[in-house]
């Protein structure tokens, strides 16, 4: 029982990070219609920029995170402006492939600067454990869940309350109508990429802190696909539920059944969902049927 509770905490914290990564993915898909295969690499770049600012340049942690966020914003805007905008209206294959090419470049650039081995970064979140209800919980995992929850709440508030957030939802709903109301769709596109990079950065930093900062972060990034398919490609609450389901199922399968199977359990789940409910649990049922 106590083991079960511990596994649950591990699963929920994995899921919370996945939800952050998936949130960026959904943001981009919802407002620009692009499937971003580089989301995992965004996690990686985010973790490495904060590492560079924090460890290499010896900045204080808060400043390092601010630098990381600024870098993520600039990167997101530049990627949108230089790579994605010329491809607006092109076929799905071109758009998917351009993000795959982008993923290769980002991952390799990180490798050029930091090598392939994991870099050492002092643990930021405390690595102690706490006892609760007869089970031991790692404190850093619990803090990850708290931080992710706060960030996700902030993002939700942003979409519900702020002018820009509402404008983003308007563009996602109907681009032409948004244009006639004077919303700059271009700016919204750039913002979507910037915010996606920021949410991936937070996810990447958290994941790097509880595991390690290495190129293996991108494998975690691939799990974004099962998450968004489960939650629905265009649903923000769906990413949270999807992230939690994938995170928990991964942990349970790996601890109670077979660690190797846990790597593809999310994909098996994905195929099952595509067969039964291709638009996901919360997605709009506007899927194009053939």
């Amino acid at each position: 029982m106590s083991n079960f509770l511990t596994q649950t905490i591990y699963g929920v914290s994995d899921g919370a990070i996945l939800a952050l990564a998936a949130l960026g993915f959904v943001l981009i898909y919802k407002s620009t219609g692009v499937i971003n295969f580089a989301q995992g690499e965004f996690l990686l770049i985010g973790a490495y920029t904060v590492y560079a600012a924090f460890v290499v340049f010896q900045l204080p942690l808060v400043l390092a995170v601010v630098v990381g966020i600024l870098f993520a914003i600039v990167m997101g805007v530049l990627i949108e402006r230089l790579i994605l905008r010329p491809l607006v209206g092109e076929s799905a294959i071109s758009v998917i492939m351009v993000t795959i090419g982008l993923a290769a470049v980002l991952k390799a650039v990180a490798q050029l600067f930091f090598g392939t081995r994991a870099v050492t970064q002092p643990a930021v979140l405390p690595r102690t454990t706490i006892e609760l209800a007869g089970a031991t919980f790692p404190l850093n995992r619990i803090l990850v869940i708290v931080i992710a929850a706060v960030v996700l709440t902030l993002f939700t508030l942003f979409f519900q309350r702020s002018r820009h957030g509402i404008a983003m939802r308007a563009v996602a709903d109907d681009q032409q109508a948004a244009l006639t109301l004077g919303i700059s769709v271009r700016r919204i596109f750039a913002m979507a990429w910037a915010l996606a990079a920021v949410s991936a950065l937070i996810g990447g930093v958290l994941l790097g802190d509880i595991t390690e900062v290495s190129s293996r972060l991108t494998t975690f990034g691939l799990l974004v696909f099962p998450v968004v398919i489960l939650g629905g490609l265009d649903s923000v609450p769906g990413t949270i539920v999807g992230g939690l389901v994938i995170g928990l199922s991964g942990q349970y399968v790996s601890s109670y059944w077979d660690p190797g199977l846990a790597q593809i359990a999310p994909y098996l789940l994905l195929v099952a969902i595509l067969l039964v409910r291709p638009y996901g649990l919360f997605g709009e049922t506007r899927i194009e049927r053939v």
């Binding site: 790579i83 010329p86 491809l87 092109e90 071109s94 492939m97 351009v98 795959i100 090419g101 982008l102 993923a103 290769a104 470049v105 980002l106 991952k107 390799a108 650039v109 490798q111 050029l112």
Partner: peptide
């Protein structure tokens, strides 16, 4: 290997653009 990957990605992006 990293240089190869950078070139690989850039080739894809440049051709698509």
């Amino acid at each position: 290997p990293a240089i190869e990957q950078v070139v690989f990605g850039l080739v894809i992006i440049f051709f698509l653009l």
